[in-house]
Computed example of a mutant assay.
Amino acid sequence: MMSLSAADWLAIRVTLKLCLYTTVILMLLATPLSLWLAAGAGRVRSLVQALVALPLVLPPTVLGFYLLLALGPNGWVGGTLERLGIGHLAFSFGGILIGSVIYSLPFAVQPLQQAFRQMGRRPHEVAASLGAGPLDRFLTITLPLARSGFVVAATLTFAHTLGEFGVILMIGGSIPGETHVLSTTIYAHTEAMNYAAAHRLSLLLIGCAFVVLSLIYFAGNRKSAVVQP
């Protein structure tokens, strides 16, 4: 068993908390957004798709820099919170959570959008003709038919959040117990030339990533086997 320090375990706890919160929030936000994007085409939808996919091509430090400006004490979000007596969100868990949600958004939206498009509108139209309401159609039609899309979206979001570095470092720095996550811990160990500790945590992240990807491919292959004639 790998020997980890108390600080390493604390970073693991913060990382898992961030991954869980980000995944839950994005599943709630990405589902209606993906349904709307999958429902048709058009100039507005294309612009929204481009906006959603922007974190895939932007350097994380660029996104983190502008979020830091917005969430800091002089930013339009952080400054408003300061005037309300709440306090700004820079260098806090709330700040890195917002950054993580934005940075991982395409990893939740794109698998769901693809699953909804493959499902098509016909099942919903038939259910609606039989008197099923929107919520009933979502629970009995959308969720079962797009289940693999939800699994892929959730696992990709969790895994992507697990390894985030640039956005986290820009918005949150490295505050133990608050914003100090696994990726920044590995960086700190490397800066201190503590390569053994960095190696242990890196192996842990590699193992987690491999397990997550294996689950995704297993789910995909299982679905393909089911639909084979």
Results as ranks from 00 to 15, higher is better:
residue 39 A to N: 09
residue 207 G to H: 02
residue 116 F to R: 07
residue 125 E to D: 07
residue 225 A to D: 02
residue 163 G to L: 01
residue 70 A to E: 09
residue 157 T to I: 01
residue 57 V to R: 11
residue 179 T to V: 02
residue 124 H to M: 06
residue 218 F to N: 04
residue 145 L to P: 07
residue 228 Q to V: 05
residue 32 P to L: 11
residue 228 Q to I: 06
residue 213 L to I: 05
residue 13 R to F: 08
residue 85 G to H: 14
residue 94 G to P: 15
residue 162 L to G: 01
residue 10 L to C: 14
residue 144 P to H: 06
residue 77 V to M: 14
residue 191 E to Q: 10
residue 221 N to I: 02
residue 108 A to S: 07
residue 77 V to I: 13
residue 130 L to R: 06
residue 98 I to T: 12
residue 161 T to V: 06
residue 188 A to K: 02
residue 78 G to P: 12
residue 191 E to I: 10
residue 158 F to G: 01
residue 29 L to I: 15
residue 166 G to L: 05
residue 82 E to S: 12
residue 11 A to C: 09
residue 59 P to F: 13
residue 50 A to H: 09
residue 174 S to P: 00
residue 137 R to H: 01
residue 113 Q to A: 09
residue 148 S to A: 00
residue 78 G to E: 10
residue 64 G to S: 10
residue 137 R to D: 00
residue 133 G to H: 07
residue 75 G to N: 15
residue 182 L to G: 00
residue 209 A to Q: 04
residue 135 L to T: 04
residue 44 V to R: 14
residue 75 G to F: 11
residue 72 G to C: 12
residue 136 D to R: 13
residue 143 L to W: 00
residue 18 L to W: 11
residue 104 S to T: 15
residue 58 L to Q: 11
residue 134 P to D: 01
residue 144 P to D: 04
residue 147 R to P: 00
residue 28 L to Y: 14
residue 52 V to L: 13
residue 18 L to N: 11
residue 220 G to P: 02
residue 2 M to I: 11
residue 126 V to A: 05
residue 180 H to S: 07
residue 206 I to T: 00
residue 15 T to G: 03
residue 46 S to A: 14
residue 4 L to I: 03
residue 153 A to I: 05
residue 199 H to R: 05
residue 17 K to P: 07
residue 92 S to R: 12
residue 198 A to P: 01
residue 201 L to I: 00
residue 69 L to A: 12
residue 184 T to F: 02
residue 12 I to N: 08
residue 97 L to C: 12
residue 192 A to Q: 06
residue 79 G to V: 15
residue 188 A to S: 04
residue 195 Y to C: 01
residue 12 I to S: 11
residue 27 M to N: 08
residue 158 F to W: 10
residue 148 S to E: 03
residue 80 T to N: 12
residue 170 M to K: 07
residue 213 L to H: 03
residue 189 H to P: 02
residue 35 L to N: 05
residue 73 P to W: 11
residue 96 I to W: 12
residue 89 L to V: 10
residue 213 L to K: 04
residue 129 S to N: 03
residue 226 V to P: 07
residue 24 V to A: 14
residue 53 A to L: 13
residue 100 S to N: 11
residue 227 V to A: 05
residue 209 A to V: 02
residue 160 H to Q: 03
residue 17 K to M: 09
residue 43 R to D: 11
residue 7 A to S: 13
residue 212 V to F: 06
residue 23 T to V: 14
residue 60 P to I: 10
residue 34 S to G: 11
residue 111 P to R: 07
residue 14 V to K: 10
residue 104 S to H: 14
residue 137 R to K: 02
residue 158 F to R: 04
residue 179 T to S: 01
residue 92 S to E: 03
residue 182 L to Y: 01
residue 52 V to R: 14
residue 81 L to W: 15
residue 188 A to P: 00
residue 185 T to I: 03
residue 95 G to M: 15
residue 190 T to H: 00
residue 206 I to S: 00
residue 126 V to Q: 06
residue 65 F to N: 08
residue 183 S to I: 03
residue 219 A to E: 03
